[in-house]
């Protein structure tokens, strides 16, 4: 090992990007779903309406995931 290069990192940095693109939306979808479950538990009669509202939240969050995961096409 070269003494001037003690903390060497090797591998593809894009992998970290994939991880971040999965972590953010994962947290987002988790929050959306947890709040929906909480709301349905409070007001079960609103379940259908809350499920549809949840879909819009998931759609926006997953858009970020898809865009993040596709970035290797321009930055890779």
């Amino acid at each position: 090992m070269d003494v001037t290069n003690i903390a060497e990192l090797s591998g593809n940095l894009a992998v970290i990007g994939y991880g971040l693109a999965a972590v953010g939306p994962g947290i987002g979808v988790g929050l959306v779903v947890s709040k929906t479950i909480e709301s349905i538990a409070r007001q079960p009669e609103l379940a259908a309406k809350l499920q549809v509202t949840m879909w819009l939240g998931i759609a926006f969050t997953e858009a970020l995931a898809l865009i993040g995961l596709a970035t290797p096409f321009i930055f890779g």
Binding site: V29, V33, A47, Q51, W55, I58, E62, A63, L66
Partner: peptide, 29 residues
């Protein structure tokens, strides 16, 4: 394909009991 699958999973999942709904939507995701 990927955006429609979300809408489809919520739509079809809505016909299931609550556990099935979340299983289908989150599993599908």
């Amino acid at each position: 394909g990927f955006v429609s699958l979300t809408a489809l999973s919520v739509w079809l999942g809505g016909k299931l009991p609550l556990g099935g709904f979340f299983g289908l939507v989150l599993g599908g995701w």
